[in-house]
């Protein structure tokens, strides 16, 4: 297998305390069906656990699903935990229930893309492929 044809590896994690992972699982399956290798970590992951998983799994992208409303607390913590491990350059995408006024704030923190509940998985796939294969436009295009 050549370096260019190797599958993209994505971590899908659910930080925080909310107990629903349907959305995360739908995205995980869509990414798998698009030929990606998706490491799914389950519910109630701390930022440290997520960053540790990203490190050990050497993923290309970290996806966070947050429905609890705590994204403005959790996302900076995950980004910090990633940076602390030298993983500051790993693109992070955030999906879930994110009020529109928070989207630019998340993007300013360094999040690559933010997706609302109705975001087409096609778009998520295309964005991930773009950033990993190296033709991304980092300016956010929130759904």
């Amino acid at each position: 297998m050549t370096a260019t044809s190797r599958p993209i590896r994505v971590l899908i994690a659910k930080p925080g305390l909310d107990g629903h992972d349907r959305g995360a699982k739908i995205v995980a399956r869509a990414l798998r069906d698009a030929g990606m290798e998706v490491i799914y970590t389950g519910l109630r992951q701390t930022p440290e656990m997520i960053a540790e998983a990203a490190l050990q799994e050497d993923v290309d992208v970290v996806g966070l699903s947050i429905l609890s409303g705590a994204h403005m607390t959790l996302v900076p913590q995950v980004l910090e935990a990633l940076r602390a491990r030298g993983l500051g350059d790993v693109p992070v995408i955030v999906g879930g229930i994110i009020p529109p006024q928070d989207v630019p704030k998340l993007l300013a923190l360094g999040v690559y893309k933010v997706y609302g509940p109705g975001a087409p998985t096609r778009q998520i796939v295309a964005d991930i492929e773009a950033v990993v294969r190296g033709s991304a436009q980092p300016e956010g295009s929130p759904a």
Binding site: P7, R29, D33, G35, M36, E37, Y40, T41, G42, M49
Partner: peptide
Amino acid sequence: TGGALLGDRVRLTPRLA
């Protein structure tokens, strides 16, 4: 598709993770 869903990590306890 060549894709895969790798879910074994779910069983790690927070302590082990």
